[in-house]
Structure formats: structure tokens, C-alpha cells
Simulated scan of single mutants.
Amino acid sequence: MSDIPENAPQHCPGTESQDAGKASACAGCPNQNICASGAASLPDPAIDIIKNRLSNVKHKILVLSGKGGVGKSTVTSLLGHGLAAKSPDINVGILDADICGPSQPRVLGVHGEQVHNSGSGWSPVYVTDNLSLMSIGFLLGSPDDAVIWRGPKKNGMIKQFLSEVDWGELDYLLIDTPPGTSDEHLSAVSSIDFTFLILVAGLQLLDTPQEVALLDVRKELQFCRKVGVPVLGVVENMSLFVCPNCKSRSEIFPATTGGAAQMCEDLGAALLGRLPLDPLLARCCDQGTDFLQALPHSPAVVALNDIVDKIISACEST
């Protein structure tokens, strides 16, 4: 481990410094005691456990967005259904890493299910025969329970998910994260960085076309480059509104600066596709029904299938 990681704050003395945990910059850091004791410079024993646990997972894809409310969890569920629908031989898993706001159990229609623990680890909840899900939402007593945890405890929970869930043989593992570039992202990325980065197909970024949302996605792209995670591409969500009755299209969020297409050109990222805003999709998510089966000819489903094909093509070429 280097003295100061590339993504560390400039004022951080580093885990191998004599001032680790003792400098004034360390005051208030949740890892201050660990750094001061010297334990932070030791290899994390969880890394090898995670590597062994996920050795049967071919492609790991993080779903990120710097801004909340852009439909990231919805698109994760759509990608899961889309990948699983391509073939019954394609096994897909979704890990809901949004510790404080787990929404995948409701979106996928499996809220209220229980997670079973056995000698081989936690068994994920199966949405379909080849689509499974693990979320902290299954471990709460009630969907209304609030998870009030600090960073280290959230990091520990994500590592526990990565090391103890018995996914079996998976072709794709989608990791749905909360918005931003904080504890949950660093915990997942650090595990991938030190274990199976070479197996990572890429990273999925979501954004809406307004410039405010694009600013946050640009930050997320910089985050990916700093931590060394390859970017698979960008999905522009809610790019336009398609009326479910007359099928007419209109721009609700005008892309005044060129939208995701211009941003991708500026930053050298691939635009995987655009998903339209469909009110029927929101209804399906609330009800936990599969939108792809409910409305297979919807413009959103057509666009999603094209995105899924690009993801599969990119993964198979790695």
C-alpha cells in the first residue's frame, strides 16, 4: 500500500506515515484509531475472502450516478431483467449497496421476503429463475425502519455482502450504489481494485440531460478515473417523454448544452443509449412488476434492449 493513495485527501498523512492518526488533519476521521494503531497498513483479510467468493462471477458492473433521483435503481432493475431475459442460461445477480435507502426489493417485487443463512453463506432472494437479489432491505424488521449508520459500519456491511452472499455461478453482478462518491463506492471499488479488477466489464453511469445533473456525472467520471475503474458507458435516463396514449414525444428536460452526447464527446466516454420517461414504468416499479414483460413494445423497452445488447457485446469482448 502506498503512503498516500491517489484518491486520498491532500491533507491525509497516509497510513504508513509516522503521523498517521496523530496529525491535526486526522481529528474527527472515523479511522483515526485504526491508523494510529498501525492496523490500517496491514492487508485487509476480507479482500481474499471476497476474491474467492466472487471467483464464479464473470462480470461485475457498478451502477453509479453523482446525482440522486435520476432513476439509477430503476435502471439497475431494468438492466437485470433485460440481461436475464436474453437467455435462461444467463444468470444475473443484483446487489443493492444503497444501505440507507434500499429500494430494489420493492422495485423487483420481492419486498417482504426473507434471506436464509446456511453453511455456504447468505442465499439471495430469487426474482426469477435466473435473476437474484441481495439487499439490506431484507434484513430490516420493517420497510419503514431507518438505517442510521456511520461510514465504517456501512463499509463493513458492503464487505459482508461481497464476502458472504452465495451467488453461485453468475454471468453478471450489478451493484446498485447510492448517489455520490462516498463510503459505499469506495468500499466496493477498493475491493474490486485489489481482487478482480481485471474481470470487471466496466461501469455504468446514469444521468439526466439537464446541465446540473451532467455536472455531477462529470465528477463521477473523474472519480472512476482516479480509482482506476474502467467506464463502460453512459446511459441518458429520462431523455424525453413518450405519451403512453398517442406515443408523441416531447422534451421535458431540454439538453441546453448538448446533453449526455456532448458530455461523452468532451470526456471520451461512450453513450450507450437514451431511455425515455414513461409513467407506466413508474407504476410497474411501484407494483414490483416486470416492465419488460408488461409492455414489451414500449419505446423504453426497445431502447433498453439496445443498451443491454451493447453491454453484453462489451463484456464478451473483455
Rank of each mutant, 00 (worst) to 15 (best):
G14I: 07
T15H: 11
Q18I: 11
N33I: 09
I34D: 02
A36L: 09
A36W: 05
G38V: 13
A40R: 07
I47A: 09
D48C: 04
K51I: 05
S55Q: 08
I61S: 05
V63H: 01
L64P: 00
G66K: 12
K67E: 04
G69E: 01
G69V: 03
V70W: 01
K72S: 14
S73M: 07
S77L: 10
H81C: 06
K86W: 06
K86M: 13
S87M: 11
C100V: 06
Q104T: 00
V107L: 15
H116P: 01
N117V: 07
G121F: 14
G121D: 09
S123A: 06
Y126L: 07
V127R: 06
D129Q: 14
L133D: 02
M134C: 10
I136F: 06
G137W: 05
L139N: 03
L139S: 05
L140Y: 13
G141K: 14
D144R: 13
K153F: 01
N155Y: 00
I158F: 00
Q160C: 04
F161P: 06
F161C: 07
F161A: 09
V165L: 11
V165D: 05
L174F: 04
S182K: 09
H185W: 12
V189D: 01
D193Y: 14
T195Q: 09
I198Y: 15
L199Y: 08
L199M: 10
A201E: 12
G202D: 07
Q204C: 14
E211M: 03
L215Y: 08
L215I: 15
V217D: 03
F223Q: 06
C224F: 11
R225T: 11
R225F: 03
K226R: 10
G228I: 13
P230T: 02
L232C: 07
F241D: 02
N245T: 13
K247Q: 13
S248P: 01
R249H: 04
A255H: 02
T256R: 15
T257F: 11
G259P: 11
A261R: 15
L267T: 10
G273Y: 13
R274Y: 00
R274A: 04
L280D: 03
C285L: 12
C285P: 00
D286K: 07
D286T: 12
G288S: 12
T289L: 14
F291S: 01
Q293P: 01
V301L: 08
V301F: 06
N305K: 00
D306Y: 00
D306W: 00
I307F: 04
I307W: 03
D309S: 07
S313M: 07
